[in-house]
Every structure is written in structure tokens, then in C-alpha cells.
Design a protein around this nucleic acid. Sequence first.
RNA 1: GGAUGGGUGGGUGAGUGGCUGAAACCAUCGGUUUGCUAAACCGACGUACGGGUAACCCCGUACCGCGGGUUCGAAUCCCGCCCCAUCCGCCA
Length: 426
Amino acid sequence: MLQVKVIREEKRRIANGLRKRNWTAKQIRILDQILEKDDQRRATQKALDDMLAENNRLSKQIGQLMGQGKKAEAEAMKAQVSAMKEETKQLEEQFNTLKTELEELLYNVPNCPHKSVPKGSGEEDNKVFKAWDGPLPALPENALPHWDLAKKYQLFDFELGVKLTGAGFPVYRGKGAKLQRALVAFFLDHAIKAGFEEVLPPLLVNEDTARGTGQLPDKEAQMYTFEKDNLYLIPTAEVPVTNILRGEILQEDQLPVKMTAYTPCFRREAGAWGAHVRGLNRVHQFDKVEIVQVEHPDRSYKTLQQMLGHVSRLLKKLELPYRILLLCGGDTGFASAKTFDFEVWSGAQQRWLEVSSVSNFETFQSNRMQLRYRDADGKIQLAHTLNGSALALARIVAALLENNQTPEGITIPKALQKYTGFKIID
RNA sequence: GGAUGGGUGGGUGAGUGGCUGAAACCAUCGGUUUGCUAAACCGACGUACGGGUAACCCCGUACCGCGGGUUCGAAUCCCGCCCCAUCCGCCA
């Protein structure tokens, strides 16, 4: 959520940012509505506070009169305060309404894209930030897509998942299951080596937590919900991990806070099915190792680049061809100011698959969850939050299987062999 | 799930209707003293929103788990919810 203060002081910049997200002039008028609503809110608060101050003053006097035994005077004053009560109540209701309305307006405004983010409406306007300059795997004509390889080598089973749960919940088996575990361990070890603290968070979160990172109210339809207990299954580890610091005021020298977590991720993906979603390309449950950083605003973009470096190293070690996209305004997530996507080449499908999304949210999340630090002058400031997948398993597995298929079997990249305990799937 | 007792500032913890935004102690920070360290002493020390000021700051309001209620006035009384501890039940 953007701060009203920022909208007021930098309305031009915010409006320009929204234009990059393809907002029309008409839509951008919401900024004026917000400022107007905030003016009303402040005026009402002033009136209410003055009223309450008067009430408090009189009440104190009543207490004193009572203490002095001046009962009649006290009673007269009581009547006076009682008379003001109705007006106070009205002001209070008005104030609460305005506050709620203001918040609802603010919930509709996405983050302002960073100045380096290109304008655009969708995928087609994303810029290739780093192209793949190496060779693509040379696979034979009859190369199998990963869903066929999975059948051939009994690595995972979708039909079985349907029996147990429903579509989009694969059951991994044998070397397929071991491969999952190996990748998780591989990713976690590298994150720990890069200075991230490993955490193993709950997979169910409450409403406050879902709100903190912006899943509520923006992306409610994306999450599985447990109405009876008022809990949500996490769509990414970002949600519980970033919220660890919700409401905290950190010391400046505690920044950056670096955390990593492996969790399964659950996504309803309602209405997202269609072409290109076979096999592991899109599933309701997948495993992911996430890296999260809470950083000083002055350093957050440098940190974003470092996170790109971290993910790049993982993909190099896995010997997967990859490219990095800088998302355009229209494709950048609601809460993000700047997002890079990583895509790996899926040899048999002959397409790039998104395996990681690395974002700087600036103060969009920290404002909502009041995640702050005390600067050198002792002033309290909102911290920047960042996160990235490092990495999401399902599609990595798809690419690994497809790209490494040989007549003898599927070879395992060298760096991964000590984790899998086998060099080939045959 | 049942019973009982609790949820107060960074921590411990006092506070049963007005003098309490909240004692005291600890921690932290600044100062005095000191050959250095320690100790002692003095002082500062919550957050949000709003108002005033160029700023240091000053003022107002709200917040003692969350939400509602009673009252001129609520940390304190009443109701609902959440959470924690202990015991019982169940159990990986």
C-alpha cells in the first residue's frame, strides 16, 4: 500500500508510474480521490480530537468537583457533557467511515514502478535483460516432454494425484521424489552459504499475515482458505517469512535481514488453465525455496541485483540455459516496484518456462505491515522488502528432465549428484 | 474438547473507576565522577494519527490481547472473540 504522504508529495511521479502500468487518465484520477478523502479525514479528525479534548477537560473537572463535595455543580457539568455526546458519536462514526473509505481507495492502487521499468501492458512488452548466449541443448527429433518422461521412468504421477486430491497435485515417486528433495537441499545450502538464515515457517497463516504481504485483499482468489479456522494456505514462503518482521522497528545496523525458507506452495490458479499448462508447467502444489531480504532503502536496488546473481549461479550450476526478463509495468505484480523473471529453456517443449521472480517491493509491503528501522538520526523509516524464488521446483524439474534426456536415461547435473546420490535416471 | 488462572511499555512487574501514557526495577542511550575498567549518582527513554513551526521542538487525540458496551470519566466494571499457562481428555 502506498503512503498517502507520498501520493501527496509526489503525485506526478506516481501518476507517471501508473501510466506505465497502462492506467488511463480516468483511472489515475483515483489519486485525487485519495487526496480529497484524506483531506476530509484530517478535517474530521481535527474536529473530533478537539471535541474529545473538551470532553476530557470537563470530565476531569467533574472529578475534582466531586472530590471537593460540590455535588450540584458536578451534576450540572455532567448534563453539559452528556449533551455533547451525540455530536461526538456522529463525528466518530464519520471519521471511521472516512478512514475505511480511504483505505479501500488505497488498496486499489498498485505500487509505483521504478523509473527503470518499461511501459507496457503484458508479457509481450517485457524486456530481455540478459539473454542466453550459450548453446541450447541439441535434442533429437523424438525428444519427450517431461510428462512423457515421467511416465517412462515413473517419476511422478498425475492420475494418482487426482485420486488422492484432484487435478494439479502430482505424486512424486522413486527417483522423482528423491530429485525433489535433492533440489530443495541444494537450493537451501546455497542460500545459507550466501548468508541467509534458514527458517521453516507454518504453511497456514492468519488474516493479518495474509494482509501484510498484500495477498489480502488483492489476491484472495489465489489462495486456498479455511473458513472454519480463518486461515489461508500460503501461495509462497514470502508470506510467512516477510511477516516474521511485521510491526518491528529494527536498528539500522540490523539491515539487511536475510532469510530463506523451503515450503510447498499452494495456488488455486482459478481460471488459469488452458494451453501450455500440461505436466509440471502449472500445478496447484509445488515446492519452492524462497529468499527474502529486508533492506535499507539506499541499498535495496543493489541488493536486488545481488539476488539476481544468486539465482543465476544456481541455474549455472544446474547447467540450465536461462534468460532474465525485466518485466514491463503492466506485467509487474501489484505490490512490486521492479521485478525480474528468470526463464529456463525447456528443450522438448521448445519454450521458456518461468522459474523465478525476483522483486523489490520498496515500502509497499512494509507500509502495510509497519516494518521499520531507526535511522542514524533516530528517525523511524519504512524498510524496503525484497524477495525471490531460488528456486521454484516444478518447472526446474521439467527442464532438467527434458534437457538431459539421452538414449541411456536422464543425466543429473554434476553439482546435484551428491544430493541425489545417483548420476542417471534409467 | 472440559476446568481454572492469566494477557500492562524492549524485559520483569505494580496498578479494581478520576491525581495513570501508566509506579518500581532491569536493559539501552547521554552526562558527572574515575589513571583505565567497574561501581555510584544525575538525566533521557513507546507507537500511530492530527495541529502548530523553516527546524530543534511544542500541543491535541487514540492505544494496557482484539472488538463492542456501561459511565460525565475505563488498564480498572460488563459482554463476545483470540491467545497463553496449568490440570484433565485425546494424540503424531
